[in-house]
Amino acid sequence: MDHKADVIIELKQVNKFFGEHHVLKDINLSVKKGEVVVIIGPSGSGKSTLCRTINRLETIDGGEILIDGEEMPSEGKKLAEMRAKVGMVFQSFNLLAHRTILDNVTLAPIDVLHKPKKEAQAEAMQLLKRVGVDSQAAKVPAQLSGGQQQRVAIARALAMHPEVILFDEPTSALDPEMINEVLDVMTSLAKDGMTMLVVTHEMNFARRVANRVIFMEDGAILEENTPEAFFANPKTERAKAFLETVTVH
């Protein structure tokens, strides 16, 4: 990998332990502007943890994480500022339960970017429209379906104009009929050139949308390839075995 200015996320020799358990092993990874990178792998392979270390929701025990060429600090104002550049969409949506949908989307632009309320709301409504839930703006999260909540979560991330969005298994908590409405939004984001790092079990999404697929197991990156090459011809036995288990159904 070259160190050009268009690299947005760069991980160098990242290691992490949960007690004795070595959950991330010498991870090297870089994501360029406009790229869609999909991380797949069996449960417990460390892919979610990897995703969460990037905006430091998880600490690391070794290595470096650079966002836009700058090292992610471990705390303080600077960390908050850098997190604002990295959007995150969670498996469990994590919409703020006591706020309306509109407030969920405007909270950070007002609090962090100091946008005037009117402006933030106007933009939020546009974003909600873009993900197709603008009619729900006045409700609270509990009144929405999972698919709708996750689309709001995407709008909320977009409202901060992040340079990259991390998706941590965005469809794993959804009922089957709602998975596609979320994947469709993600696909259209990718088409618009959003840089995305996606941890998922949706192989079709990886096949269709990813520029690059990363296969993880036991806390290490085992393979990194274009989706065509990876799905047609996985190099490692473990990736082969994994693909057989997930593509049977």
Binding site: A80, A84, F90, L107
Partner: peptide, 8 residues
């Protein structure tokens, strides 16, 4: 986590 990831 959601609030912090938004940069708050």
């Amino acid at each position: 986590e959601a609030a912090m990831s938004l940069g708050m």
